[in-house]
Design a protein around this nucleic acid. Sequence first.
DNA 1: CTGTTAGCGCGTTCAC
DNA 2: GTGAACGCGCTAACAG
Lengths: 335, 335
Amino acid sequence: MLNKQVTIKDLGRKLRLSVSTVSRALRGLQDINPETRGKVLALAKELNYEPNYIATSLVNKQTKLIGVIMPVISSQYFVNALSGMMEIADANGYHIMSCLSDESIERETAYLKKLVSIRIDGLLISVSKNTTNVEEFINVQRKGIHVIFFDRVLENIEATKVTVNQYEGAFFAVEHLIKKGYTRIAHIAGPRHLSIASDRLHGYLDALSKYNLQIREDYILYCEDFESEALDKIQKLFLLKEKPNAIFAINDSSAIICMKYLQNLGYRIPEDVAIAGYNNDPISEVVFPALTTIMQPSYEVGKLAAQLLINEIENKSNFYENRILKSSLIIRSST
Amino acid sequence: MLNKQVTIKDLGRKLRLSVSTVSRALRGLQDINPETRGKVLALAKELNYEPNYIATSLVNKQTKLIGVIMPVISSQYFVNALSGMMEIADANGYHIMSCLSDESIERETAYLKKLVSIRIDGLLISVSKNTTNVEEFINVQRKGIHVIFFDRVLENIEATKVTVNQYEGAFFAVEHLIKKGYTRIAHIAGPRHLSIASDRLHGYLDALSKYNLQIREDYILYCEDFESEALDKIQKLFLLKEKPNAIFAINDSSAIICMKYLQNLGYRIPEDVAIAGYNNDPISEVVFPALTTIMQPSYEVGKLAAQLLINEIENKSNFYENRILKSSLIIRSST
DNA sequence: CTGTTAGCGCGTTCAC
DNA sequence: GTGAACGCGCTAACAG
């Protein structure tokens, strides 16, 4: 930032006033002659003075900075959440510093250190796939920095958490398939240790149970990495004697991979096989046939998480909350 | 950030050392007893000491912060560019502070002030649709803050600029349509004052001219806001006596709106009408039929802009550059 | 109403 | 090798 910036000292010197008087004038405090106040403001404007946020932060012991760490930004879900956070932050005079962990614990930890170093007032985090250690976050809390988990949360830590009911969304989707008359419903599932994946799996299982449909292990396709594994497992699935007539996928992209594959094989969607996805990605709407999916209130998650964090920072709230938002079924032509 | 954080003063007190000794130990300078150095480091680790970035910035007169202002983040283009910037920033010890102007000059200005106040070392900006005033940016430059424009740039200002050759991309797309045998090619265009829109329009016009095709004003659909206007104008276009048999749209979303509309009317794509878009949005790949489009090197734009900025900040470069990257045609089934 | 003093956490002289 | 003193830009407490 060099030396080119104007400071209150500069203003004071030119006006033959002390820095404290200038400071008071600038901040519009009482106990100041309207005339001198006018002079200060005029000169500040003329010289294009901007207060030094850094210096203020140092004195006030608050930066009005909120750190955000999330795994990716390529997914619409996180983009929406981030937008929601930015909106709330902005409305409350805070600013967001966003970081992408890219699903790496190392990067997550590195960013955590950096954000602590920058002295953020609070942190919003959706942990990476492999994060299980809560210690680092407890350390952050000990430093007086508020931490709120959203989307992908950790269990063994006391903190406010904002999530979406994954179980319910999955249940809705599968129930919808059943009511449409599909009985052999397969599921493209995620890694078992990921809570989101596990919740959706349970929604799937419970929906089947409720309607007395048989649960078949060979209809459940566990994938660690969807891009690479989904297609492979789908191929094997459709070599079975009793092929499924519906698929509930854990996300839209794997649903679409699946759809394209089956279409190439000559299956008609949804006549021969119905497909439902999860996330309501923009592509789900334009793919042919348009994909039935679950819409998560991602924007609201972001807004809520940010608001709860700011409340905690400003001591408007002194207990941890566990907010679980509802998602909704969007029925399109693929089912 | 409260009072809970450990400072070098705390370390010094516990170790009965002066703050300057602690500071030297922490930074690994010379002139220090390896033994005391070890003690300091050990205690720092034990107490979870993290240097105060804020205080350091104040002393060093640099924040290692890079401000980014862009119109939106919902488009894949900007998400990619941002990712590229983050990668470069990270690799060089900088951090990104991103802001969304949401195409509003007011917000753009407000963020500009805020970032100046935070004392960012440099700024990467893609201006809003309506921004024409360069004064504010010149003011920022005067303060010693380096400014680099990317994507949407301003003409009347001396600064490094990174853009993508829009003219060329449009030319390629239209040339491709012509070579495929389409002769009556319409264009969904953007606002005339937007340089991107104007460049693409010229690419369209010049391609037609090169192949001696007639330029028809009624085939050029100027839209201020694509979402709302594109459909309306397309409808009118296809009421003409001589209907076009190909459409080159300024972006993928308007191309797809258009495609869906025509398909509903019974037109076959690309047999009856060919359609080409721009941007290579993820949806362009999965829409049916898959959309021919232009891919811009968005990630590279972000990386390059960030790298050039850091070079300027660190005085490795002392002249302004005007970098124009190439885009490429992606041929799919819609043409 | 205004100026003086002290201090936020840290880096940088300059002595010792 | 180490410490004291000062300053970065600003706010806060007090004196006048």
